[in-house]
């Protein structure tokens, strides 16, 4: 069995043509660059379609995280008010 597999492998191996592009990464048909940093798809490009499809939901959420410390306190006070009203109504 292993022998048969090896024979098949040898058949393919002998007909392998060593051209320049074979085995290189394929990025949209462009000639791949030599810098490894350009070959690696990563960072914000990964899941771009997913986040782009959800942008109506995600963008307001990101806008909400303003990074201003007054807003942090604001959310704290708002949650406090919500929790107190919630508990008062239910107990």
């Amino acid at each position: 069995m292993a022998l048969v597999a090896y024979l098949f492998y040898q058949m393919g191996e002998s007909s392998y043509k060593k051209t320049r592009l074979k085995g290189d990464p394929f990025i949209s048909g462009n000639r791949p660059s030599k810098d490894p940093r350009d070959i690696h798809v990563g960072g914000d490009n990964l899941y771009w379609g997913f986040t782009h499809a959800l942008r109506k939901y995600l963008d307001p959420l990101v806008e909400g995280h303003t990074g201003i410390v007054n807003d942090y306190v604001y959310w704290f006070v708002v949650t406090l008010a919500f929790v107190l009203v919630f508990l008062y109504l239910l107990i």
Partner: peptide, 10 residues
Amino acid sequence: NSDDARRCRE
């Protein structure tokens, strides 16, 4: 100003 102190955000 707290508006300027927001390099950490999002």
